[in-house]
């Protein structure tokens, strides 16, 4: 509310700058993941035992790590895996939480009780423990981590789906649609869904950075990426033991990860604030 007391242009400029920077960071990182591995001539896995822990120079723009591998090439291929697994986990969480959750809500009865009991159970089991169990049962790797991310964040999405579904279901237009004799699925698909997607997609933007952070934590603990598939978390774990000899090899993935998730969070928060009618500083 206090923002309205400031001159209008200051509000706009003060609010847009972080978001513009965040947007640039996100675009650059996505570009790094998409075309980076093609542009960087070095092989992310090729070891050069004559050039260990070298500081950045013309041949290796970000230097080499403790096995003489090119840090920039690894950063680019790591971006690909980190983004893929993080976004895949968020998509899975969305599909399970919103998809299965809304279907269960539409059908009601035992399906609803059962599905939400399962979400309750998943919520009670801290994500890191769930990931350890899944990785033990399957095997360490990107797919197990994606599944763990999906199962960890699905209950949060389902909770939002339940709250918005309850709010919209009370509206007159839904009662009208029901009174025409439309089936539950038709009410859900034609009338509820268009009004729920905005809120749910905003929430997806909020959980995306969390998924990427969790993916990195799991990879850092050795549950995610394998040596052949470097993800940023794995790179940090690998290079962490050589922080004294080659700080650049640790700092590159640490900074890339932190700045990228920070940028995603700023954009997600902005999206949430813009779609929330009770946002602070609303005119």
């Amino acid at each position: 509310m206090s923002a309205t007391l400031l001159p209008a242009d200051r509000v706009v400029r003060g609010r847009r700058l972080p978001e513009m920077l965040a947007g640039i960071v996100v675009v650059l990182t996505v570009l790094l993941a998409l075309v980076g591995p093609m542009l960087v001539p070095q092989d992310p896995l090729a070891q050069d035992l004559l050039a260990l822990n070298e500081a950045p120079d013309a041949a290796h723009w970000l230097g080499t790590d403790h096995l003489g591998r090119d840090v920039l090439a690894r950063l680019a291929s790591g971006a690909r895996l980190t983004l893929l697994v993080g976004a895949g986990g968020a998509a899975l969480a969305f599909l399970l939480g919103a998809g299965v959750g809304l279907l269960a809500l539409a059908f009601g009865g035992p399906a609803r009780v059962l599905v939400f009991a399962a979400f309750d159970l998943l919520r009670a089991l801290p994500g890191i423990l769930l990931a350890m169990l899944l990785v033990a049962a399957l095997s360490p790797g990107p797919l197990s981590v994606m599944l763990a991310l999906g199962l960890t964040y699905a209950p949060m999405v389902a909770e939002v789906a339940r709250a918005t579904h309850a709010r919209e279901s009370a509206a007159d237009y839904i009662a009208a649609a029901r009174s025409f004799g439309l089936s539950r699925l038709a009410v859900l698909g034609r009338h509820l869904l268009p009004n729920l997607t905005g809120v749910l997609l905003t929430f997806a933007a909020i959980i995306l950075p969390r998924c990427i952070v969790t993916e990195s934590v799991l990879s850092f603990l050795g549950l995610g990426g394998t040596p052949e598939l470097p993800s940023w978390g794995r790179m940090i774990a690998d290079a962490g033991g050589f922080a004294e000899e080659a700080p650049h090899a640790v700092l590159a993935p640490v900074l890339a990860l932190s700045v990228f998730t920070l940028a995603l969070s700023i954009l997600g928060e902005r999206l949430r604030a813009a779609s929330d009618p009770l946002r602070d500083g609303a005119p």
Partner: peptide, 22 residues
Amino acid sequence: NIWSIAVPTFCIGIAGILIFSI
């Protein structure tokens, strides 16, 4: 608030070790 959501604790941990210990 945004810092705690976005910046993984282990990244700060590594940066902290690098700065304060090394």
